[in-house]
Design a protein around this nucleic acid. Structure first.
Lengths: 198, 198
DNA sequence: CAGAATTTTGCAGCGCCTGCAAACATGCAG
DNA sequence: CTGCATGTTTGCAGGCGCTGCAAAATTCTG
């Protein structure tokens, strides 16, 4: 792998774990980038070589995880209905994140700044990849139906996330997610939708 | 109305129109709060008495408009299916905003900072009111189905917004919005959903 | 081990945003 | 009109997020 790359990954993780510990301890707003950098033994300037913003350190995913969710996407059979694929990918992704979701939720609940902070639920890179994957599945015609399904699936995820009490176990969230996806997908059924073809 | 209130509204509007003109002319990032304040004949400090952030000046709605969309909500008959109500409210709201949506879109397209900036499509106050209205329509049991419908409706709106080319006329956006709402609502039908109980 | 490529760091600085207290404007009662 | 209470604007001082830049330190290549 090379010393350079491994050091880089190590630094990334050092910064993130340091930051998350501090955030959990004192809240997002009460911790400055300077402190995070100090706790991770890097210069404040270096923090921004790794994360585009203070928020990003909460939402960005470990670079190694990217391979995992790309596999999730790649593994969907080409003839599977789009909605089923999206469901499988989202559930898989949320399982992949696991205990990071509750942590993130705890931080969000305590920090107005974080709560308002775009990032639908988790991951900016994941979302970009998912959008790309989705459009790659829409060979011809207007992309609206596919984009709609994607956004509806994300809406289901949001709903699960929002209605999930912070006390409930993580499994409860996953259950809820599946439930929301099922309900939201009722009409978006696998059929090409008799009225949608050009 | 009182001198005080009218002056306040006037200041609000002066700031906003000054800001939007400058933004449109030179882009969101290239205009500082200081300049906006100067153009509106207020002190920079006063800007923040009216808007919580530089972004807010793009997304906040005129206080008077609030009455209008509250009327939209109040006007929905109590026995109307939730989805139909949501559709009517969202379409009405988007009509209400009218040409402000294209403007906002233009700014977003030019400014990465704005694009990332949470605010699903438009309005923070509107979203809060709509959420409240929606939960007020969910008397008993878990609020998940209602919340889901709301989020799905917003997803439809997002889709219309995203897939709407900036060149297309505004009416094209409205058409698209209705179309997305119809498609997304296919399964969310008015029935209480036979499979929803635990 | 020398030189190329890359990463870290310090520095200087802009701009957003906030709390605070003094000036200022408005509404109201006498 | 006058004086007081209430609400609004302003200046000041300052923290903090974030950026560009160029020097120092580190890793890679031959």
């Amino acid at each position: 792998m090379g010393l350079r790359e491994s050091k880089k990954l190590a630094a990334w993780r050092a910064i993130r774990t340091a930051a998350l510990e501090l955030f959990e301890e004192r809240g997002f707003e009460a911790v400055s980038v300077e402190e995070i950098a100090a706790a991770a033994n890097v210069s404040p300037r270096t923090f921004f070589n790794y994360f585009a913003s203070k928020e990003a350190v909460v939402f960005d995913q470990d670079p190694e995880q990217r391979e995992h969710w790309r596999a999730l996407m790649a593994d969907r059979p080409a003839d599977e209905p789009l909605w089923d694929s999206l469901t499988a990918i989202l559930v898989g992704f949320n399982q992949l994140l696991g205990d990071r979701i509750p942590l993130q939720r705890r931080l969000k609940d305590r920090s107005p700044a974080l709560a308002q902070s775009s990032w639908e639920v988790v991951g900016e890179q994941f979302l970009a990849d998912l959008r790309e994957w989705t459009t790659s599945r829409t060979p011809e015609g207007d992309p609206m139906p596919a984009a709609l399904k994607l956004n509806v699936a994300l809406a289901a995820q949001n709903t699960a996330y929002q209605t999930w009490g912070p006390d409930e176990p993580f499994d409860g969230y996953l259950e809820r997610l599946k439930c929301c996806l099922r309900q939201a997908g009722a009409g978006t059924a696998s059929t090409p939708s008799s009225a949608s073809n050009s």
